[in-house]
């Protein structure tokens, strides 16, 4: 068999494993890990569009995740609508927010852009925490028991698993399609060198704004999915800095700017985190985040391209160098 056949067989096996996982998961604990992996993969893939492919490293994506997480519970709390009615509203609002903050922050480059996104996300987190309409510091609660299937409130997590898997497939398909389109090429050009890209006629600001808007709306979708599952959100779990950080770590560990990097990162990091939590006595001690930080430092120091880059280097003799982005 050629390497192409092997790759196809491997992909089919991976898809089958992802589809069959809930049947194999022996307890709700393992099922929950699976659901959390998918969610982390979705949000990191959404981040990856801006941070990986377009090279604009946002560390404030929690602001879009939070918007997506709040809107479903807000429409439920205010008007008793089914939470999922808030999903498109959240995505729209995230795009609006992206346009609003994109104009000034995307003029900035490099570290400066990253720090500015943190400041904006923190500003929003603190404001939400003082705003009574959205539950202030306490947050918002979803329906305790489903009024019908449309509330998407399930006791068993299996339906969430398949919904999330479907969304992840959609996000990956979209990212894949983007790579072959003009916007995708423009994004890579801007990442490689903005001045050079501009001199070749790439509308760099419009490209970055488009990447930000797309990335923001998908991140909001991830936030909505999160809140459908947990039925609860507060300023920290929606807008907190650790929400933003997780997306960056997951994507960077697998390989920022690669299609499957975020999924690979999530498959490694989320189980590791949950085992660390149970070994080290819960998140209370903070050791889990020491581990998190340690992983990022090691990735940055030794393999900034992530695991995909590592694999590519180990398989350098293979004729796939031409695919290097």
């Amino acid at each position: 068999m050629s390497s192409d056949h092997w790759r196809r067989a491997g992909a089919a096996l991976a898809v089958a494993a992802l589809l069959a996982y809930p049947l194999a998961a022996s307890s709700p604990y393992y099922l929950d890990i699976g659901v959390t992996v998918l969610l982390a993969a979705i949000s990191a893939s959404a981040w990856n569009i801006l941070g990986g492919f377009a090279g604009q490293v946002s560390v404030g994506h929690g602001m879009f995740f939070g918007v997506g997480a709040y809107l479903p519970l807000l429409v439920y709390t205010l008007w008793g609508w089914p939470p999922m009615a808030g999903i498109p509203l959240g995505m729209l609002l995230a795009v609006g927010l992206a346009a609003l903050i994109g104009a000034p922050t995307l003029r900035l480059t490099g570290h400066y852009f990253s720090m500015a996104t943190i400041a904006v996300a923190e500003l929003i987190r603190i404001l939400v925490g003082t705003w009574g309409l959205v539950g202030a510091a306490i947050g918002l609660q979803g329906p305790a028991t489903a009024r019908g299937w449309w509330d998407l409130t399930f006791r068993d997590e299996t339906p969430y698993y398949y919904i999330f898997l479907g969304v992840l497939a959609g996000v990956l398909a979209l990212t894949h399609a983007l790579q072959g389109r003009r916007l995708g090429y423009y994004m890579r050009a801007v990442k490689a060198g903005e001045a050079a890209a501009r001199s070749l006629g790439v509308a760099s600001r419009r490209t970055k704004l488009a990447a930000l808007a797309l990335s923001a709306s998908l991140t909001a979708l991830a936030g909505s999915l999160y809140v459908l599952k947990t039925g609860f959100v507060d300023p920290d779990s929606g807008f907190g800095i650790l929400v933003s950080v997780q997306m960056v770590i997951v994507a960077a560990l697998g390989g920022a700017g690669t299609l499957y990097g975020p999924l690979v990162g999530a498959l490694i990091l989320i189980p590791a985190q949950s085992w660390a939590n149970s070994w080290l006595g819960g998140g209370g001690s903070g050791l889990t985040f020491v581990l998190y930080g340690g992983i990022i430092v090691l990735v940055a120091r030794f393999e900034p391209g992530g695991l995909f880059e590592l694999r590519r280097r180990m398989l350098r003799w293979r004729p796939e160098r031409s695919r290097a982005a």
Binding site: V59, V299, A300
Partner: peptide, 10 residues
Amino acid sequence: MLAQILSTFG
């Protein structure tokens, strides 16, 4: 740049 940002962030 991503490595620079990640290093001090981590």
